[in-house]
């Protein structure tokens, strides 16, 4: 079955709202993402999120091994404009990104008058899981989250480059300025870390 641009994207948006409202909870978007035809050259869930967020009114950037061709495809599908990282509203950073730290560092944090102009960064990582469901979580990175949307603390476990999270934390030192982060893993699981989420390693 092909992707339904109305209902599948609505479902995806609701999953994003839930992820933002309850930071660190994971949701499996692979059943929807696998319906994208033809199979996209980038992570299918990143592609799916780009369809929810990006159109001709906003700009994006992508840092991947083939950012030129990957960016052109996102641009063709969504109508979004490719811009350098510092000018992009949405920054896609894949597993094979060339300069991921520089890309994240360049992201806009907005202004005190317009903090909503802070960028949204969408990163592809190896693995994400919400340990509240049980199961083994050994030999993984683990961060403890607190802030709005989290009753006391919540743990997010997975495999990601620690310096990406560290750079994200540095971008968010001066609230309300900051960047909002979506993490997507290779299996199609997604979690969000809005700028309000405090991260402890």
């Amino acid at each position: 079955m092909q992707l339904d641009f109305v209902h599948d994207l609505q479902q995806t948006y609701r999953a994003m709202v839930r992820a933002m409202a309850f930071p660190g909870t994971t949701v499996d978007l692979s059943p929807t993402a696998t319906r994208i035809e033809p199979v996209p050259p980038v992570n299918a869930v990143l592609m799916l999120l780009s369809m929810v967020l990006v159109d001709s009114e906003v700009s994006f950037t992508i840092d991947s091994a083939n950012s030129g061709s990957d960016g052109r495809i996102i641009s063709e599908v969504t109508g979004g404009r490719m811009r350098p990282p510092a000018e992009a509203a949405f920054l896609f950073v894949t597993n094979d990104a060339v300069n991921p730290i520089e890309t994240i560092r360049a992201a806009s944090v907005g202004t005190l008058v317009d903090p909503h102009l802070g960028a949204t960064i969408l990163c592809e990582v190896d693995y994400l899981t919400d340990p509240s469901g049980g199961g083994t979580t050994f030999d993984r990175d683990s961060i403890t989250l607190s802030g709005p949307g989290i009753e006391s603390t919540r743990r997010l476990v997975g495999t990601w480059p620690a310096e990406w999270i560290a750079e994200r934390n540095r971008k968010n030192v001066e609230y309300p300025l900051g960047v909002d982060l979506f993490l997507v893993d290779r299996r199609g699981h997604m979690a969000a870390l809005p700028r309000t989420t405090q991260v402890e390693v």
């Binding site: 109305v6 609505q10 967020l53 159109d55 909503h116 709005p148 309300p176």
Partner: peptide, 26 residues
């Protein structure tokens, strides 16, 4: 269209709503 709006209008409202959740009260 489903839910009255064209998809572009929904997208614009959705982008604003996600930023609203990220910056409580703003």
């Amino acid at each position: 269209n489903y839910a009255f709006f064209d998809e572009g209008s929904k997208r614009e409202i959705r982008r604003a709503s996600l930023k609203a959740i990220a910056i409580p009260g703003y």
